[in-house]
Design a binder for these strands. Structure first.
Lengths: 116, 116
DNA sequence: ACCTATTTGTCCGTATGTATG
DNA sequence: CCATACATACGGACAAATAGG
């Protein structure tokens, strides 16, 4: 799993890490059951603090993509492939909407039409 | 405004037309106030029936992107640039969700987290 | 202001394919 | 396998809006 940060985007580092992991799961670079790199290792490789990586991992856990247990590290959960792909587009939509100043309720209305 | 159909996708022609027009608006190839090609002309150029184009135009009108009046044709509405961009991502999300079998309510929950 | 020809979307119906029960 | 419903695409006729003289 190759991971790259881009300082020019202005996006928080922990979000960039989470996005990169989501993409890796969605693209099948890491499969359910596999372990992600340990927080210390990844932090060292990226040149950031361990807690920054852990914040990203925590978000991914809250989204249901990975399991996080002391001693075992971060393990990709079954079903995460679909979730990661969808989550990626959800985030893209949220960013697009806020960029254009469109409200959440309006987005939901548009989505409801489209998903009928 | 150049428009191209792809028969291999299996997507309904009227949807392909609507998508292409949305992208053209979003990319600034046509600006608010400008006229879209008449339904007969565009249909002739694409080799489809006039009503197929009109169905696409009707959908775009329902989305608030264009105005449709007989005698005058289809005119791009102000504010359509933002709307077109957002709508494009909304459709992408709807397709991704259905492909992965994820329900509308679940998508809304994910979106709410993200847009807070 | 008037008339008329043209442009253009709207409304009627029809055929075909594709799920659905 | 059949019937039903639905969506897609096409065709012809119609009426509103527009443009030119």
């Amino acid at each position: 799993m190759l991971l790259q940060l881009d300082p020019s985007t202005g996006l928080p580092v922990y979000r960039q890490i989470a996005s990169a992991v989501r993409r890796a799961i969605s693209d099948g670079e890491v499969s359910p059951g596999e372990r992600l790199p340990g927080a210390r290792d990844l932090a060292g490789a990226l040149g950031v603090n361990m807690h920054t990586v852990l914040r990203a991992y925590g978000d991914l856990r809250d989204e249901g993509l990975i399991e996080l247990r002391r001693g075992r590290g971060a393990v990709v959960r079954p079903g995460s492939v679909s979730l990661a792909g969808v989550r990626h587009v959800v985030i893209e939509l949220a960013e697009t909407a806020s960029r254009h100043g469109i409200e959440f309720t309006e987005i939901v209305a548009m989505l409801e039409e489209e998903m009928t």
